[in-house]
Structure formats: C-alpha cells, structure tokens
C-alpha cells in the first residue's frame, strides 16, 4: 500500500513543482495566505514528532547503563557493552532464528496463498457465490489475534479439537497430537494461523490487479485454444506481476518487524525455544527486567536488520526491473 501512495505522491510532487514555480511573492506572504493549512497540519506534525521521533532519541540508551532513578545525563556511558552482552547470549540467537524463520515462512505462504486464492476466485462463475466467498474470507482479518489464538488453541487441542478429531477419524494418526505443547509445531501453527487470518484480506489488492488486465487478452487466447489453466498461467499471473513484486518488496522491508502478538498469544512455556521472537525477547529480558538499555539494544538491532533487508530487496528489484519503490 505504501508503495502505491508513494507513486501517487511522486506524481503530485511533479505537479507541485510546476505550480510552485508559477507562484510569485515571498515566503511570508504565502505563509500568511496558507495560515489555515498550517493550522491544520502543524499540530499533528508536532504530535507525530512526539510519538514517533522523540523515542528515537532513547536509542542513545543502548550505549548507557541506564538506571531508572537517574536523569538521562547522569547515566553511565558504556559504549557497545550492551551489544556485546547481547551477542553473547544464547537466547538472542534463538530469538533471531525464530524471528527470521517465522518471518520467511509468513512471507512465502502469506503471499502464495492469497495469489492462488485470488486467481481461483477470479475464475468463479456464479456472482452470488463469489461475493459470499469474498465477504466471508475478509472476516478473520477483522477479528483480533486474541480471538484467533483462542480459536486455534481450541481447534488444535487434544480434548475434542477439530483437527485432532479429523486426523484420528481419518486414521492418519492413532493418538491426538499435542500441537500446542511441542515446539516443532509452533512455526507451522503461527504461519497457518496467519494465512487463515489474512488470506482473504490480502486478495483485495491482487483481485484489483486482475481487474486491470485487458479482457481482450483472454478472448485472443481463447481463439488460440488456450484452456483455463493456460490463461491463468500466461495472462492472469503475468498481469499481477507488478503488484506481486511491489508487495513482496514491501513485506521484505517489514520482515523482521513482524510483531510478537501471535507468538505472545499462541506460545507458552513449553515452546519458548521456538516461539520467542526478538520483540518478545526485548519485552521479557529488557523491559520486564527493567534492563532498559539492553531492551533498546535489541530494538536497534531489529531496526538495523530490517533496513538492510529493505535496501537489499529494493536493490535487487531495481536491478531486475529498473524501477524503485523507494
């Protein structure tokens, strides 16, 4: 989404430049003319400054040994000590591994399923049925992770959970599996819940991309004797290509900042080795232990990684398509 607003903004910027060059009169004259525009924007800019930029100043804490009782300037500066402690902690590497693993799984499946679903949905003939499926598929997106975690836990429970019931009655397994208590299932559970929750919602943009495809292409391919699968493969999918790439790059940029809601709500003490992501690690070993400096160091590490990933992804994208999304 950001990318599309980006495109719009760059287009507008060109217009602005041409309009501004036509303007005459000094800065203050214009300032006075535009006082209402300033009154309507500056308060919110200050607001955003306080809540989004001021905390960045707190990053300096990562180079201190922060003690809550003292003021910022009375803190002891310790250089990179916090980071050294961080890189020596075994837990940190587990958290990093879990973050990357669940991010990549989420990225791959959270993009394959919506694309396939959008293509198949586009092929549905009955309009009422199509609308119904669409509306229903948006439903889980609006439901909170708290509720989804409850639903998933219930469905996977050994005590009458539908998944175990199905697997047992189909004789795939003899005994109900303790999904929520065994670490090796955790990444899969998180990924599957994510797909279940967001698949329908993600299709909105892909469906819009499909609507933009020239209908004549389908007719022409029909005349050439192409079946439905070949149409999907040679027309629909290439038609979605740009949208897919842009969304993919955007999600790579947000790869490490996947949040921790799912992991927090679905995880438990038995599966910590697989559920603890960097943010949860910062929460548990930083904030909740009052180790503010350490927690900040984790957040900085997280940000640096995601910026590197974003630039890498954008660089690859630039090379292959000669376009930039940033």
């Amino acid at each position: 989404m950001e990318s599309t607003t980006k495109q719009a903004s760059s287009r507008k910027r060109d217009q602005a430049a041409s309009l501004n060059s036509r303007k005459t009169g000094g800065f203050w004259k214009l300032f006075k003319q535009q006082r209402y525009l300033y009154l309507m924007s500056v308060p919110f800019v200050i607001w955003a400054f306080i809540f989004s930029y001021v905390p960045l100043w707190g990053w300096l804490m990562a180079f201190q040994e922060y003690k809550p009782a003292r003021s910022f300037f009375d803190q002891k500066w310790v250089g990179f000590d916090q980071f050294i402690t961080l890189f020596q902690d075994q837990q940190f590497y587990l958290a990093l591994r879990n973050t990357l693993a669940m991010s990549f799984l989420g990225l791959i499946f959270g993009f394959i399923f919506p694309v396939i679903f959008a293509i198949l949905l586009n092929e549905v003939r009955g309009m009422v049925f199509k609308r119904t499926v669409q509306t229903v598929s948006y439903l889980p997106h609006f439901v909170s992770w708290v509720v989804v975690a409850g639903i998933v836990t219930k469905a996977l429970s050994t005590d009458g959970g539908i998944i175990n019931e199905l697997l047992v009655s189909l004789h795939i397994i003899d005994q109900p599996i303790q999904f929520m208590a065994q670490g090796q299932w955790f990444w899969g559970i998180v990924t599957a819940s994510d797909v279940w929750k967001e698949m329908g919602w993600s299709t909105i943009i892909y469906l819009a991309a499909i609507t933009g495809i020239d209908q004549e292409q389908y007719e022409a391919s029909r005349v050439d004797g192409a079946g439905r699968f070949r149409q999907m493969w040679h027309i629909t999918l290439p038609g979605m290509r740009t949208t897919i790439i842009v969304l993919l790059i955007m999600s790579i940029g947000h790869l490490v900042s996947i949040g921790f809601e799912k992991q927090f709500l679905l995880g438990n003490n038995l599966v910590t080795d697989y559920s603890q992501v960097l943010d949860l690690y910062a929460l548990k070993y930083g904030l909740e232990m009052n180790r503010y400096s350490y927690g900040t160091a984790i957040s900085i590490f997280n940000s640096v990684i995601s910026i590197i990933l974003l630039f890498t992804a954008n660089g690859i994208f630039k090379k292959t398509t000669k376009e930039s999304i940033m």
């Binding site: 306080i50 809540f51 989004s52 001021v54 905390p55 960045l56 100043w57 707190g58 990053w59 804490m61 943010d279 910062a282 929460l283 930083g286 904030l287 503010y292 927690g295 900040t296 984790i298 957040s299 900085i300 997280n302 940000s303």
Partner: peptide
Amino acid sequence: AGLVPTFLL
C-alpha cells in the same frame, strides 16, 4: 523506536 524507548516516553 521499539518497545523500550516507547514505553519510557
């Protein structure tokens, strides 16, 4: 900024 700086703010 991350969890801790936001919390302190």
